[in-house]
């Protein structure tokens, strides 16, 4: 099923849910005012549900808006969002009975920076999706681009495109993966020596302006007070100094340990184009290797960092 048909399905489901009063709000996406930037949308009435859409530009993670939200809600969820919802249910941030999941198979979201990079210096005014191709239109040009070429990096290595939980599945199930290898994300650094890694790490994160967009876009970051905002004592400085940037990114990644579902919302939100998945995916791989856990795959699963086993690896302890 193509995206336009799925969008229609989502609208109809939303109208029905809101009309029958089963939910107070349907959280979905609406078409952005700028091409390739569909944004989270909250539909409270059946009329508002007309604005909902579905496309390959739905880069935000909607699980974020379900956190501690009062009342009943329906959330449009592809694979990663549903995994985050499962995680939030397991962490007692969302009540399953208040949640209605409108499941969708993810087509693989498009990285707008990759599309823009193909047309340097040109203004893109519209992007249409036709099957596996995008038609990029601008002033005086219209070109076809294969979706595979401009997909977000995390969508290549996705292992769960179908929703894990869904009360209603629109468009049916599709293939589970795009065929990328999740273990390879961290591999380029793992081969390097210590000082080269440090140089690479500095290079990757030097553009960080500490806007915390990655934190705000992340459905895992729901602490009432984030460690970067704590001022007494201050754990992490506010400057763009390399130590402060490193502290922020390492700790942010660490807080996602055993919880990150690789939804890519952080990278999509970053105004500086920083690849923070390099860090989160290293942890994801460690958690899989050490404790055999994949986050968000089953309701009722215990997060690995809240558990221990007597035979956990401990060769690093003297």
């Amino acid at each position: 099923m193509d995206n336009a048909a799925i969008a229609k399905g989502i609208r109809e489901a939303a109208k029905k849910l809101l009309g029958e009063g089963k939910v107070d709000v349907v959280i979905g996406y609406a078409k952005g005012t700028v091409p390739m930037r569909d944004y989270p949308y909250f539909a409270y009435t059946p009329e508002e549900a007309e604005n909902l859409t579905w496309s390959g530009f739905c880069c935000n993670n909607l699980a974020l808006y379900a956190i501690r939200r009062p009342g009943r809600m329906a959330v449009v969820a592809q694979g990663c969002v549903s995994r985050n919802l499962v995680g939030l249910v397991n962490e007692n941030q969302v009540k399953r009975e208040n949640l209605y999941v409108i499941g969708v198979n993810s087509p693989g979201m498009v990285d707008r920076r990759k599309v823009q990079a193909l047309f340097p210096g040109q203004t893109i005014t519209e992007v249409e999706e036709v099957g596996d191709e995008l038609i990029v239109k601008g002033v005086g040009f219209a070109e076809k681009v294969a979706r595979k070429k401009v997909m977000r990096q995390n969508c290549y290595t996705c292992v769960q495109r179908n929703p894990v939980i869904s009360d209603e599945l629109i468009g049916g199930e599709g293939p589970a993966s795009h065929g990328g290898n999740l273990d390879k994300v961290a591999a380029p650094w793992e081969k390097l020596g210590s000082s080269e890694r440090w140089a690479e790490f500095q290079e990757s994160f030097k553009d960080c302006i500490r806007c915390y967009a990655c934190r705000d876009a992340c459905p895992l970051c729901y602490c009432h007070v984030c460690f970067v905002d704590e001022s007494q004592p201050q754990w992490c400085g506010k400057t763009q100094d390399e130590a402060d940037v490193a502290t922020f990114h390492l700790l942010r990644a660490f807080h996602c340990a055993g919880r990150c579902t690789d939804c890519g919302a952080c990278e999509s939100a970053c105004p500086a184009g920083i690849k923070m998945r390099r860090l989160t995916m290293k942890i994801e791989k460690d958690i899989r290797d050490l404790y055999g856990y994949q986050p968000g795959m089953a309701i009722g699963a215990q997060p690995p960092m809240t558990l221990f086993k007597p035979n956990d690896p401990q060769d690093f302890i003297k």
């Binding site: 460690f227 992490c236 400085g237 130590a243 502290t247």
Partner: peptide, 10 residues
């Protein structure tokens, strides 16, 4: 907490 360790290094 990891922040103690990073804070110490910092």
């Amino acid at each position: 907490s990891p922040k103690f360790i990073l804070s110490a290094f910092r």
